[in-house]
Amino acid sequence: GIYVQIRNITFKERKKLKNHFVLGFVPFGGCFEEFIEPFISEMKILEKGKIMNIQGRTCLVIASLGDITADLPQGNDLVGVKRHGANKVCRTCNTAKDSLTLNDLDLPSVSRYHHQTDKQFEEIFAASTITERKKIATQYGLRLQPTILDQLRWERHLQSPHDIYHVTAGKVLRFLKITIDALSPEGKVEFISFWKSFEYPRRWQKLPNPISHIDSFMMSDCLRLAMMLPFILNRFLKTKHFKQSELDKLRVRTGVSRNNLAVKLWLRCWILMAKTMAIAFKHSFTEKDYIELQEYFENLPNLHVNYHLVQHARNYATLLNTSVETKEMVHKIFKNSVLRTNRKNIDLDLLKRYNTLFAMRYLFDGGIDS
């Protein structure tokens, strides 16, 4: 699904479902560029400015692309960078694949810049043979052709931030699976016992059993879990609750000498995860928050995209300004509606339902046709 949101409204309004507008749905195997071409043509007109009559007033309307958000593979496609099987897989910097997890990365020196990427594409086009073009593209980690979005006025690397929800929720889910697998049978029993007796906030729904229903966890479940798990583990976790083989692995990797220290490190990692989630999803940032966010990301399991989240937070004031949690809720509505269609012309059926839903919202909001 492809969705559009108007940015010059308040943060509160941007989080409402009715302010997320669906452009349409690209079927599996469909061509994104063919689908988005009409939208690009209209955006070109709006970039130059168009006179419109708005509520009886003649206005000059100017609009442009603010930013795009997508998961990692599709995000790379939209920027013109190769996917994650290439040597240079990041759409924000030129870090080689074998250096993604280094602690001493100098991001300003390895970042991708729009004008440099333009020159690299020109070098690819200037190659005389397809083999040479592929070789140059592989060297720079770029696709053979720039994306259709390059027809608009935008900065491809600055305006394609990573989404905080997809990035952090994936880390939490992965760490949860590792933690559960590391627990002994006795540890799992204790975990479930304290899980059931944990004091949930009243506005939260009860989360599913993380041991038996781990594969059904949604992103929101993972993020709530990150805030709860340090308290739950702190109430019961001891060396006897871990498999000895897992403790041995952790001791070898961290260099600690005793099992109880390894358990404390495990718990500390969950604490850092919770603190990171708390600050990453703040509605406003201070300069101190940016510094703390950098420190927390450095202390998490060293994943490359963490570095760029701090940069995105500075570029867009907060990470929530480029997050897609509301869009995911809208997308869930359409996914649930698929089951009620005949699956012959799904995109048409979904758009009909969307128009009906939008009309009902308009009426409930007090709208009246003239």
Rank of each mutant, 00 (worst) to 15 (best):
A96Q: 11
T101L: 08
W204Y: 15
G30W: 06
I51D: 14
G49A: 01
K88N: 13
H304K: 05
I279F: 05
R203M: 04
R153L: 13
E13Y: 04
K243C: 06
D104R: 01
Y140G: 03
N342M: 07
F297W: 08
L152K: 03
L183C: 13
I148M: 09
G24N: 07
L267N: 02
S220T: 11
R112F: 08
D248C: 04
S64E: 02
T131F: 12
Q74N: 02
F194I: 03
K282L: 14
D118L: 13
A262G: 00
D215P: 05
S184G: 01
Q159S: 07
T341M: 07
K16E: 14
R202A: 07
N103Q: 09
F297A: 00
R343N: 07
V189L: 08
N94C: 13
K82A: 11
P73M: 09
Q116V: 04
S99M: 13
E37R: 01
F125A: 11
A169F: 04
A278L: 11
V110R: 01
G366W: 00
H331R: 00
F125N: 09
H166Y: 10
L107V: 08
R112N: 05
K171Q: 15
N19T: 07
N209A: 12
A86S: 14
P210H: 12
D369C: 11
E42I: 06
S41Y: 00
L183P: 13
N260V: 12
F231N: 13
V324A: 15
D77A: 11
M218T: 10
A126F: 12
E325D: 15
A262H: 00
D98L: 12
Q244H: 11
S111T: 02
N103M: 04
H157D: 07
S99V: 04
Y140V: 03
N94D: 14
